[in-house]
């Protein structure tokens, strides 16, 4: 028998599912579809022209480049932070563990102005880079800094639980068989962590692509140089170029959906890996 729902003695299914679908449709699905419907009013060449002007291409390059670099740095240092938090004892560990989630809790505008003040030429951190000829705030490097902050918790929080669950027997076996610590890490621990690490990377990358609040303060927002795609959508909107803004939004949405799919696949891989282990 092929049925929509398996039998259950519990009440409330229709009410709960009905409300869920209604709410989700009204708040999320219908509004999102508006972007696609509005874009459908454009012909294909019009759409293509709107999303491939040199200024837009430059914004893609910055958005994706900086997001990728930030996610990569977060993968390396997120793994390091997760490792240190799980494996070692040091004073203040609980506080550090709690503060890792700060980028999730701190409003992006606050992060934006704080990072700008720090990494500007006269800021606490920026003043040490200025003599070296490195400008951070108001350049693409500033975008990278903001996106690194935003993505910081993702890798730590995906890798941490997997690292906690690794059986010490595996490492003991490796040690018994003559592996040194580095070999054990590279051949035994790292492969176990890889799915979680990649999930964290993808989450940080996806978050960074759409990020707006923290970036606009530190970026300087110069067209062709330090202008991210979400900002370009707002610029177009302010010029009443609704078609152009919507076309760009559709590009961003499609990329979001692809990232969501990739993240779901990675999580599935991750779960399967930990189920086998």
């Amino acid at each position: 028998m092929y049925t929509f729902k398996q039998h259950s003695v519990l009440p409330g299914f229709n009410l709960a599912l009905g409300f869920t679908l209604l709410y989700l449709s009204l708040i999320v699905l219908i509004p999102l579809s508006a972007a696609f419907v509005r874009t459908a009013a454009l012909t294909w060449p019009e759409f293509w022209n709107a999303v491939t002007t040199p200024r837009v291409i430059a914004s893609y390059r910055l958005t994706f480049g900086a997001s990728f670099a930030a996610a990569l740095v977060n993968a390396v240092f997120g793994l390091l932070v997760a490792w240190v938090l799980v494996r070692y004892r040091f004073p203040g560990k609980k506080l550090v563990d709690a503060l890792v989630d700060l980028p999730f809790a701190l409003p992006t505008a606050v992060a934006g102005i704080a990072l700008t003040a720090l990494y500007a030429g006269n800021g606490w951190v920026g003043q040490y880079f200025e003599p070296l000829g490195i400008k951070i705030a108001f350049t693409p490097i500033g975008v990278f800094v903001a996106l690194t902050f935003i993505g910081l918790p993702f890798v730590v929080r995906t890798v941490q639980p997997v690292l906690e669950d690794i059986e010490s027997e595996l490492e003991e076996a490796a040690a018994t068989l003559g592996a040194n610590r580095l070999q054990t890490f590279l051949r035994v621990i790292f492969p176990t962590l890889l799915p979680a690490l990649m999930t964290g990377f993808a989450l940080a990358f996806a978050r960074a692509i759409g990020e707006y609040g923290s970036v606009i303060f530190i970026a300087g927002n110069m067209p062709m140089v330090s202008e991210i795609t979400p900002l370009l959508i707002i610029t177009k909107l302010e010029q009443y170029d609704y078609a152009g803004a919507t076309a760009l939004a559709v590009v961003m949405l499609v990329i979001s959906f692809v990232m969501l799919l990739i993240i779901n696949l990675l999580q599935w891989w991750s779960r399967r890996r930990s189920a086998l282990a």
Binding site: L29, P31, L32, G210, Y212, L231, A249
Partner: peptide, 27 residues
């Protein structure tokens, strides 16, 4: 409950997390 399309529904609920805030306002 167990019903058809459950995984799809779970993914749809997560959608707003993966949409850029700017796009969320635009729609």
């Amino acid at each position: 409950f167990e019903f058809l399309g459950k995984n799809l529904l779970t993914t749809l609920i997560d959608l707003p997390f993966s949409v850029s805030p700017v796009v969320s306002g635009l729609i």
